[in-house]
Design a protein around this nucleic acid. Sequence first.
DNA 1: GCATTGACGAAGG
DNA 2: CCCTTCGCCAATG
Length: 125
Amino acid sequence: MINKISSSKEKIKTPKEYSFFTDVYDVVRQIPKGKVTSYGAIANYLGTKLSARMVGWAMNAAHGAKPKVPAQRVVNRNGMLTGKFHFETPTKMEELLKKDGVTVRKDTVIDFKTRFWDPATELSL
DNA sequence: GCATTGACGAAGG
DNA sequence: CCCTTCGCCAATG
């Protein structure tokens, strides 16, 4: 279950480890195979659209996340694999995307426009 | 406790 | 059309 908002404004009584990150992870894990989204889209869905950086920052902590977070499906608004250097190896991201059926050329997702999956649109239905 | 940084994004020059 | 600046918010020095 996704909690739509967990911004600092609304203090949620969280069991223990619950925060902006958790929401991000949940959303990212729901990205369909072969699709990608952007940090801004996730931020927008979470209600912090003006803070896309927080999403990226959250992803930085996603390394040790339990079910592995498919961070490779999250790129910047340009479809560029800006976070590839944060993976185990700089090539890992492209690799994973390729396995998802996503074509990557020069650190950029081909057909990003059609591959784009917006949680605010897809999950709000 | 202030200054800098960041896996971003939009706007301005 | 490319480059710079600003905003956003949390973490880190």
